[in-house]
Structure formats: C-alpha cells, structure tokens
Simulated assay, not measured.
Amino acid sequence: MSPEPSAEPRQSAAAPVLRDSVVGGDNIQITTARDVTIVPRPLRRPSAPRLLAAGILVVLGAIAVSAWPTLTDAAQDLSGTPVLDGTATTRINVGDSLALPGELTADEQSILLREPSDDEFARLMSRHRAARLNSMDVVLVLEGRRNAPIRIIDVRPRVLRSGPPPAGTCLTVPAQGDAGEFEVKADLDEQRPSGGGSRFLPKSIDLAFGERATISFTSRARHRWHEWDIEVVYTQKAGDGVRSMFFRAPDGEPFRLSGPAEKYATVWNDPSYLGVGYRITARNKKCFEPPP
C-alpha cells in the first residue's frame, strides 16, 4: 500500500512565506527570522523654488530684526508717548530762607512751633506759594524712551510769571540738599547763560532707551520774584528740527524763587541758630540772610 499523504503539506525552501511590515517609515520584507531586507526610501533633493523661498524667508527675517527698533519708535511716536521721562525735585538746604506773600495763620504758626515733618512743612509752603530766597537747587533726572538716541541740546529755565518780591513773611529752615552729575546755573533776573555763551548746559547729552542723565539746576534771583519751570531742548531725528519738553515739581506746581524784599511784616528765624526751632524774631524788618 502506498503511504498516505501528510495532512500538512510541506513548504519548499525556495518559496518562503512573506510578511510585510513597516518600521520607522521603511518598508521591511520579512521571510524568516534571519532573513530581513530593508528597502530605504529614496532621498528627495530640495527643488530650486524651495531653496529660493527659504532664502527669501531668511532675508526677510534679518530685515525684520534690524528694523524692529525703528518700527517700535514709530509706533510710540504715533501713540504720542513722550520721548523722554523725567522728574524734577528740589530740597531745602541748611540755612535756606523762603518768602511768603502773606502772614501765617494762628494754626499754621502752631504747626511751625511744634517742629513739623518735612512733608508737613512742604505742604504748608506750597499752600502759601512760598518762594526760595536768593537761590535754589532743582535736581532733574531724564531718561530716554526711544531706541534711537535723543540728543539733549540744552536745559534752561522758562519764566512763567514775574513780579516784585513778596514781603508778607520770611522764614529760615533746616533741611538737606542734593547734587547731580551735570550742573546748570541760571540767573532768572537776567535769563541768559553766563559767560556770554549760547546755552546753559555745558555739553550735549545723548540718551538711548533706558539711559539716564542727572542735572543739578541752580537758579538765582536778586531783584524779582519768579515762577518758573525747566525747558529741555532736544532733537530726535535728523531733519526734524529742535523740540522742547517742560518739567515742573512732582505736584505739577512751577518752581518759585525770589530776591529779598526791603522788609517783611513778619520774620521767622532760629534766634540761637542751634536748633531751637521756629520763632518770630522781628516785624517790619529784613529777613535773615545766610552768608554766601
């Protein structure tokens, strides 16, 4: 008898079973565990239009980066943002005297007699529009707010009002002063730079974004009373011409300075000059003037 055929037919070695799979994006044909063939995908070379587009994007990006500061400045100009930030402050120095147009009330006199704080005294003097006598120092701090530098050409006083010296009350008080990097000196009675120059600022100052300059502004008056603020003269761009910004005290009030009157209805001084405090020392007399 012939042998019965096997229930499972044999597979020829020349005809392996193929199984398709994909690994990592490549087509893999697997026949046996030891027979693996990887068929890589063909590499695509970038076409000339793609290379051109990439180059254009790189150039445009470089242009945008270089033009960004100019665009930012232009946007701030259109929005009306000031090209400079600044603060102007003044402190009373030891021995400074102030003149008021009127006399102090009884309540205000009691404030002086109990030695008020600096803030209380400043509010009292502001209420009476007190003027510093003979000279005063104002510290102006400027900060550039544009990427392109702002050139400060001059810093000078602008007289708003003027008249005879007030003769109501004169008083002399203690306090501390301050100083700055650039010094400006002006005589408000004359209103022109000393030494025959054309400007008050010793030299021009260039301020880029975030850069600061501190100016110590000393003004003098010997004959008249003045209300004044500080004018900053600058140029922003070539061909734009000269422009100005104006600065006052932090409370928005102008500065006040006066020469001495012939006599005052009431004179307040420290009679001992040793820190006793505010006292009425004379009436219808000249004010105490500290030595120059």
Score class of each variant (00 low, 15 high):
Gly168Ala: 01
Leu201Pro: 11
Ala208Asn: 06
Leu124Ser: 10
Phe209Ser: 10
Asp206Trp: 01
Arg161Asn: 12
Ala131Gln: 09
Phe200Leu: 12
Ser194Ala: 14
Pro157Leu: 04
Gly210Thr: 08
Phe182Gln: 13
Thr172Asp: 01
Asp85Gly: 13
Ala88Ser: 14
Leu112Lys: 03
Leu160Arg: 15
Ala167Arg: 08
Ser97Leu: 09
Phe209Arg: 13
Gly86Gln: 04
Leu84Asp: 02
Glu143Ile: 04
Val94Cys: 05
Ser126Met: 07
Asp137Thr: 15
Ile152Pro: 10
Leu100Asp: 12
Gln176Leu: 13
Thr87Ser: 14
Thr172Ile: 02
Leu171Val: 03
Gly195His: 04
Leu98Ala: 15
Glu143His: 03
Leu100Lys: 15
Glu108Arg: 06
Gln176Ser: 15
Pro101Tyr: 05
Thr90Ala: 08
Leu112Gly: 12
Asp154Trp: 01
Val138Pro: 05
Gly163His: 09
Leu84Asn: 03
Gly163Lys: 05
Gln191Cys: 08
Val138Glu: 02
Met125Gln: 08
Leu98Asp: 07
Ser97His: 03
Asp119Ala: 14
Asn93Tyr: 09
Leu207Ser: 04
Asn147Leu: 07
Arg127Tyr: 08
Leu133Met: 14
Pro166Leu: 09
Glu181Tyr: 06
Asn93Lys: 06
Ser162Val: 08
Asp107Ile: 10
Ser110Phe: 05
Val159His: 00
Leu142Arg: 08
Asp154His: 00
Ser97Arg: 06
Gly95Glu: 09
Val83Gln: 11
Met136Pro: 03
Val139Thr: 11
Ile153Ala: 06
Glu115Tyr: 06
Pro101Lys: 12
Ile153Tyr: 02
Thr90Arg: 14
Phe200Lys: 04
Ile205Gly: 04
Leu140Lys: 02
Arg151His: 02
Leu140Cys: 03
Thr90Met: 12
Pro174Gln: 08
Ser117Cys: 01
Pro202Arg: 12
Thr87His: 09
Gly168Asn: 00
